[in-house]
Amino acid sequence: MDVLSILIDWSPYIIAGIAATLGLVLIALGIGVLLGLPMALGQVYGSRPVRWVIGIYVWFFRGLPILVLLFLFWFGIFPGLGLGDVPAFVVGAVVLGLRGAAYQSQIFRGAIQSISEGQMIAARSLGMSRSTAIRSVILPQAMRIALPGWSNEYPNMLTDSAVCYAIGVAELLTVTSRIVSQTYVTMPIFLAAAVIFIILNYGGLKLLHGLERRIEIPGFGSGAV
């Protein structure tokens, strides 16, 4: 059987696999922003115990391989909490998200710290509260500076999402290996999967670079600060 007809026969599964992969990536990136940004603020503006707790979290989630984290949560922590029925997809997205938050918090932290202190002083002297200054003055600049670095989280997350194969999430790599084991056609199917991953990778990056240009403020490059 030739490769093209295999791909056509299996196309519903392949599309479902692509959807699952993108779902993992988008949910995980979302969790990463929602947790990573407060963590970055906590690390810059928080009290000593807050900084300490966040530091431990970041050290833990960045120090462990994604495979070990997936095993730990899928076999250990989720069933241990009585959540053994949670689907592998949810566990995969949560683990990728928790780990992504650790990485993203450091991107956001670097961006926040790159805004000169004078901005906070100026905002306070205009009568803004600390939190208003952070929200209205620091963050709008910091997020723009963070975006190029943050964009790199997308390809990292996409390639890491494939490791969810290990806990049986029906994402693109799992679908690929299922097709291979059913059809005994190996190399062309693997290469087709690689092509799809590469398209998703660089296609997504292109969208993100477009976004960077859109929200750019003329005259305010990261180099200009």
Partner: peptide
């Protein structure tokens, strides 16, 4: 562009 796991496969 390719996941390392797919490269290993």
């Amino acid at each position: 562009g390719t996941p390392l796991l797919l490269l290993l496969f």
